[in-house]
Amino acid sequence: MFLVNYIKDVLSGIKSLATGMKVTGWYALHHRKEKITQQYPDNKDTLVLPERFRGEVVMPHDEHNEHACTGCTACELACPNATIKIVTKFDIQPDGKKKKAIDKFVYHLELCTFCNLCIEACPTDAIKMAQTFEHSVFDRTNLTKILNKPGSKIREGIE
């Protein structure tokens, strides 16, 4: 009885190993059709990224060098890992009143997890996610970006 069990044991072991080898062997023969990895996108001209792909946070400016950011710091508060730091200043308006505006919109790309919470939080749609993906640089300080262009101001009519 022991011998029968022993031989059964060996044969079932061989059978299960052969089953495994059959699977990987089939994959090895059909790797061209079945492959599941993506190549690095070298085809920059014809590349179509999905609409919701999140590369980095940018602040769109229009042709008059104006943006829509009021400096409300909603995005800074929404950010889970302190990626955004907004430095505000007070502009003197023509009628003599002071008005809060952004001086620097500091964005730390190296800390960003691309969670999209800041874009959701923005009441004026001043920031959005861009589709860039080649972010590597030689110096870490290059990853700290100031999103508002120099000399830009807030668009008229946005509060």
Binding site: T24, Y27, A28, H31, E34, K35, I36, T37
Partner: peptide, 10 residues
């Protein structure tokens, strides 16, 4: 290469 093919990689 063999490992890549068996794991459906390139």
């Amino acid at each position: 290469k063999v490992s890549a093919w068996m794991q459906l990689r390139l």
